[in-house]
Write a protein that binds this DNA or RNA. Structure first.
Length: 425
RNA sequence: GGAGAGGUGGCAGAGUGGUCGAAUGCGGUGGUCUUGAAAACCAUUGACCUUCACGGGUCCGGGGGUUCGAAUCCCUCCCUCUCCGCCA
């Protein structure tokens, strides 16, 4: 959520930022918000003056009664009572305006950082860097969904039987590879200073609002209606919400956490290659890294985080490219996002395996996540997070890129201590 | 699922209708003392909104009500704890 303050003082920049995101009617909506804001403050001032008068009158009654000045007390009572009705009316007005302002304000996406390229869609994203790993086959390479079936390490049918499409069952070496990746990712994150957290996998509405999933993307989450809780779409939600309504000390920053969780996403998928095999699932595993940063440091931190993710991919030996998402492709809550994509030679396409974002104060405003600065004043912190990493597409790329002419799949060196085997098949 | 208790400032915990944003203790911060530390003592110490400022307003789990006036009374919702039941 953007600060209303920012709309007031930085109006043109906000409008420009929203337009860069192709947010419809940016100018009208911002103006509407400013009008509501002005109206709110005018009403508030007026109401508070009345409240002050009423409070004075009420306070005097007690004293007057004690000293036996009954008549004056009665007069004060009458004054207070007459103000009461007026105040009640004004309270309702303030409430209405506030609600309208809030409802409109939460529909605004974050404003992009100036370094984000202007663009419309994913075609306008900028490639920032790549590594020089190349994968080529001199035989007919199989896509991972065929490899998985061939080696009986993932069953799509059993997942359908148990639950439905998008819920695969990992079996034998498939399950162990999965577990190895999780452990390795967590160990690496810990080495990099991220403290591990094991949060609940379902969260309440407040948490969903805090990180920006609610009220907007309600349909993306599985909702347990009987208890009104939501299955988490990412560990970002519970981990970041640990700090909802928290005032940190400045010296506590940065806060660094990592966590492994399954992630649940309803997203009604499209058909074909995009969602085949592990490419898009309703349940998948992910290790997430989260930071709460001092505003002055958050962009520095973003670079450190994306570099950390690239280091993981280098160690796994996967070819990647680092993308800087353009204004049109950046997520609703983010000010700047890097995506990491891994090249899957057998599918001949890039697979997104990580997304690292700086939300600046967008989430922190909703979370009321602040720190106390030098002057002892509370200030809103910055939040960041990134996948490090999402498992399924890493799995897909490993299976596909590491397949050999004899049909076996070689496990990367770094994972072998965790898998206990060096190849599949 | 059944029965009961309770939700007050960073924490503990008073406060049952009027000067209570709230005693007291602990913790935090600053100071005195000390070579230093501890102890002791003194002072200070909530958040938010609004205002150029002075100031004003709101907040005792959330919402609503009674009253001139509510932390205090009533209604309602939420949450936590204890016991029983069930159970990895």
């Amino acid at each position: 959520m953007l600060e209303i303050q920012r709309l007031r003082t930085d109006t043109e920049a906000v409008i420009k930022g929203l337009e860069g995101r192709h947010f419809a009617n940016a100018r009208e909506i911002v103006n509407q918000l400013l009008e509501l804001d002005e109206k709110r403050r005018a009403l508030l001032t007026e109401m508070e003056q009345n409240k002050h008068a009423m409070n004075q009158a009420s306070k005097s009654i007690g004293a007057l009664m004690k000293t036996g000045k009954r008549e004056e007390a009665e007069a004060a009572k009458a004054e207070s009572a007459s103000l009461k009705a007026l105040i009640k009316e004004q309270e309702q007005q303030v409430q209405d305006v506030e609600t309208a302002r809030f409802d409109l304000l939460v529909t605004l996406p974050n404003i992009n950082h100036p370094s984000v390229p202007v663009g419309k869609s994913e075609n306008d994203n900028a490639t920032v860097s790549t590594n020089d790993i190349k994968v080529a086959f001199d035989f007919d390479a199989l896509p991972h969904w065929e490899l998985a079936t061939k080696h009986n390490i993932i069953s799509w049918e059993l997942g359908v039987k148990l639950t439905g499409a998008g819920f695969p069952v990992y079996i034998g070496k498939g399950a162990r590879l999965q577990r190895a990746l999780i452990t390795w990712f967590l160990n690496k994150a810990q080495e990099a200073g991220f403290e591990e957290v094991m949060p609940p996998l379902v969260v309440n509405e407040d948490s969903g609002f805090g990180t920006g999933q609610l009220p907007d993307k309600e349909g993306q989450m599985y909702h347990v209606t009987e208890d009104n809780i939501y299955l988490i779409p990412t560990a970002e939600v519970p981990i970041t919400n640990l700090y909802r309504n928290v005032i940190l000390k400045e010296e506590d920053l940065p806060i660094k956490h990592c966590g492994y969780t399954p992630c649940f996403r309803r997203e009604a998928g499209s058909y074909g290659k995009d969602v085949k095999g592990l490419n898009r699932l309703h349940q998948f595993d992910k290790v997430e890294i989260v930071q709460i940063s001092h505003p002055d440091k958050s962009y520095e931190t973003l670079e450190v985080m994306i570099n950390y993710v690239m280091g993981l991919l280098d160690e796994l030996g996967l070819p990647y490219r680092q993308l800087l998402l353009c204004t049109g492709d950046t997520g609703f809550t983010s000010a700047k996002t890097y995506d990491m994509e891994v090249y899957s030679a057998a599918q001949g396409r890039w697979l997104e395996v990580s997304s690292v974002s700086n939300f600046e104060t967008f989430q922190a405003n909703r979370l009321k996540l602040r720190y106390r600065g030098e002057d002892n004043k509370t200030q809103v912190a910055h939040t960041l997070n990134g996948s490090a990493l999402a498992l399924p597409r890493i799995m897909a790329a490993l299976l596909e890129n590491n397949q050999q002419a004899d049909g076996s799949i070689v496990i990367p060196e770094v994972l072998r201590p965790y898998t206990g085997f060096d190849k599949i098949g």
